[in-house]
């Protein structure tokens, strides 16, 4: 088999090697998205499912509310608020991840080569435990009767437990904790490629520590920062478990809204439409980043 591969011309070899992954992407990514796209333009069935009847109602429902009596459409911000909340929560989580992840990645990248892999290994340890379990245990730690509040109460530092569970803060914390390694790993990759002697050179040329960070380190690991942020931001915006458990269902995010349409509300087209809107938003973010970095490269040369 290997012999056969090595004898193949380059072009055919590439095709042969790509086929399995392309098949997987086609079967489990393109086709499902196509189904979701089609469903979003259909009418809901009474007990779930869809009625094969073209309609843009699902998209209109996102922005407008149907008055019960007059059946007239009125502009409503209810779903936009959910989108906005998802956006801010994901952004908070991304910023938190960056603030915590950058020093972590810097620390690992500046260790000796042998210990680096050990530290990286440590970063991935939480992934041995299921996300659901990790999120639930986090809830136990931050709830009113949890160890943090118990500790503070016993010390007499506070009189009433600090409300942490079921708040936007809890959701952001949960997202931050879930996706931190996605920030650390690309940052580590960029930082380990960075030539630390450039900081010495900057220091020699009158740059303070802060100026060296801003003018030399950050611009050189920019790509790592962008990929880390995207890798945290994108799954955060559609996250489901953290907002559901830590937000107690009160902090509805897009992921929960979509899940609700397919479970409780039995409004599949609306769920599909919200999914498509989310997908479009994420794509827009990606496209903007790509264009901007390409533009910068072009002007930089």
């Amino acid at each position: 088999m290997l012999e056969k591969l090595s004898n193949m011309p380059d072009r055919h070899l590439r095709k042969a090697l790509l086929t399995p992954s392309l098949t997987m992407i086609g079967l489990f990514l393109i086709i499902p998205i196509a189904i979701v796209a089609v469903y979003s333009f259909l009418k809901p069935g009474t007990y779930g499912g869809v009625v094969w009847d073209f309609s843009t109602h699902a998209y209109r429902q996102f922005l407008f509310e149907e008055d019960f009596l007059t059946l007239k459409l009125q502009f409503s911000t209810a779903y936009l608020e959910i989108f906005f909340r998802s956006f801010t929560q994901a952004l908070t989580a991304t910023v938190l991840c960056f603030i915590m992840g950058f020093p972590t990645a810097y620390f690992i990248a500046t260790r000796s080569e042998k210990t680096q892999s050990l530290w990286l290994f440590a970063v991935t340890i939480p992934y041995w435990v299921n996300l659901l379990i990790r999120t639930v245990s986090m809830l136990f730690i931050i709830r009113d009767q949890g160890p943090i509040n118990a500790f503070l109460l016993n010390l007499g530092l506070i009189e009433d437990p600090i409300k942490m569970a079921y708040t936007p803060f809890a959701v952001a914390l949960g997202l931050f904790y879930s996706y931190l390694p996605f920030m650390v790993l690309p940052l580590y990759t960029a930082l380990s490629r960075f030539d630390m002697s450039l900081l010495t050179a900057a220091h020699d040329l009158y740059a303070s520590r802060w100026a060296a960070l801003r003018h030399v380190l950050i611009p050189n690991v920019k790509n790592g920062i962008i990929s880390g942020c995207l890798l945290v931001f994108i799954p955060s915006i559609g996250a489901f478990i953290a907002p559901d458990l830590l937000g107690g269902g009160k902090q509805l995010m897009i992921g929960n809204l979509i899940a609700l349409q397919f479970q409780g509300s039995r409004n599949w087209p609306f769920g599909a439409a919200v999914s498509m809107i989310l997908l479009t938003m994420v794509l827009l973010v990606l496209i903007i980043f790509t264009i901007r970095s390409k533009h910068r490269d072009a002007t930089g040369e």
């Binding site: 002697s197 010495t200 050179a201």
Partner: peptide
């Protein structure tokens, strides 16, 4: 005095030019 406060500059062995 820290390096960035000294009116002394260095030409480094491996140049250390800023790649960006």
């Amino acid at each position: 005095q820290p390096a960035n406060k000294r009116p002394i500059n260095t030409v480094f062995q491996h140049y250390s030019l800023f790649p960006h």
